[in-house]
Computed example of a mutant assay.
Amino acid sequence: MSSFRRMGIACVWRTIWSFTSRARRNEGRRSRCVCRAGRCSVCPMDDVRVLKRNLRGEVTWQYAGRILRREPNAVVLEAHFNLPDMPFLDTTLKRGDRFVETFYTDRWYNVFEIHDRDDDRLKGWYCNIGLPAVVDGDTVSYVDLALDLWVSPEGEQRVLDEDEFAALPLDETTRRRAREALTELQAAFLSGWRPPTAMGEA
């Protein structure tokens, strides 16, 4: 996400996320699914905290989200953009834009699907290359490796932050796995793959 910082938004991730008004209204019911069947894999459930870590394991940013779906190897959550509107690459991020984020415990990336606040129009996918996520109770954490991929709704791809990735003190295996993850993501999007939604497949 360092691309935002290069645009002059140095603290973008310090205040980027907030609970939805629906989440606030449902406070106290976070452990019940709306289908009244108890916990299930598709109904909104728990509030969670997402921790982004650096190579030393230090938390560089954290924010709250709401679980939409759990799978054996993935978790899908929702959060909302809460900064003033700002341009980003070929789109504009608006206060209230909906982010559907998929974190995998067996893949070296996570994917943020961004929807417009007004009409829920898809704006694109922001993909972070990093170590596989760790899901522990109400916490989702991952180690960010700087390398990012942006995919527009039309499928146009743009690799970001390659200079920062090159500067990281990574061992040969980690650097190779990160590059392989980027290649995997690029090929997946080219083939028509899309990350899961609350009702989708991981």
Rank of each mutant, 00 (worst) to 15 (best):
R6I: 06
D47P: 03
C35R: 06
S31L: 13
A10D: 08
C35T: 07
A37T: 11
W13K: 05
C33D: 10
A10G: 12
L51K: 02
T15Y: 00
R22V: 05
D46Y: 10
R30S: 13
V34S: 10
A37Q: 14
F4M: 11
R6G: 10
L55E: 07
L51I: 02
A10K: 10
A10P: 01
L51Y: 03
G57C: 05
C43V: 01
C40F: 09
R24M: 05
R39K: 14
C33R: 10
G57A: 00
M45C: 11
V50K: 06
V59K: 07
D47L: 11
R29E: 13
W17M: 00
K52W: 06
D47Y: 11
C33E: 09
V50I: 15
A10I: 02
D47G: 05
V42C: 08
R30F: 13
M7A: 15
S3Y: 14
T20P: 02
D47M: 09
V42K: 08
G38Y: 04
S18T: 05
E58H: 14
G8F: 06
K52L: 11
V12D: 01
E27H: 13
S21K: 11
R25H: 12
F19L: 15
M7S: 14
I9T: 05
R49D: 00
A23P: 01
R39E: 14
R24P: 01
L51N: 04
T15L: 00
M45P: 01
M7Q: 15
R24F: 01
R6H: 09
C43N: 00
V34Q: 09
C40N: 08
V50T: 03
M45S: 13
V12F: 05
R24H: 11
C43E: 03
N26L: 15
R14V: 02
W17L: 02
G57D: 06
R30Y: 10
N26A: 12
C11D: 15
I16W: 08
D47E: 15
A37S: 15
R29V: 14
R6L: 10
R5Q: 14
R36P: 00
T15C: 09
R25I: 03
M45D: 09
I9S: 08
T20A: 13
C40I: 02
D46K: 11
C40S: 04
R29I: 11
G38N: 03
N54E: 09
R14W: 08
C11L: 12
E58Y: 01
D46R: 14
I9K: 06
S41L: 12
V34H: 09
K52S: 10
S3T: 14
V48M: 09
C11S: 15
M7E: 14
R32D: 08
N26S: 11
S21R: 12
W13G: 00
F4H: 09
A10H: 13
R36I: 09
R5L: 08
M7P: 04
E58G: 07
E58N: 13
V34Y: 07
R53T: 01
C11F: 15
R39Q: 12
C33S: 13
S31W: 13
V42Q: 10
C33H: 04
R53E: 00
V48W: 01
C35E: 06
R49Y: 01
L51E: 12
G8H: 06
G57H: 04
R6N: 10
C40W: 08
G8S: 08
S3A: 15
T15M: 03
R32F: 05
R5N: 05
I16V: 09
I9F: 15
S41C: 05
R5E: 14
F4K: 01
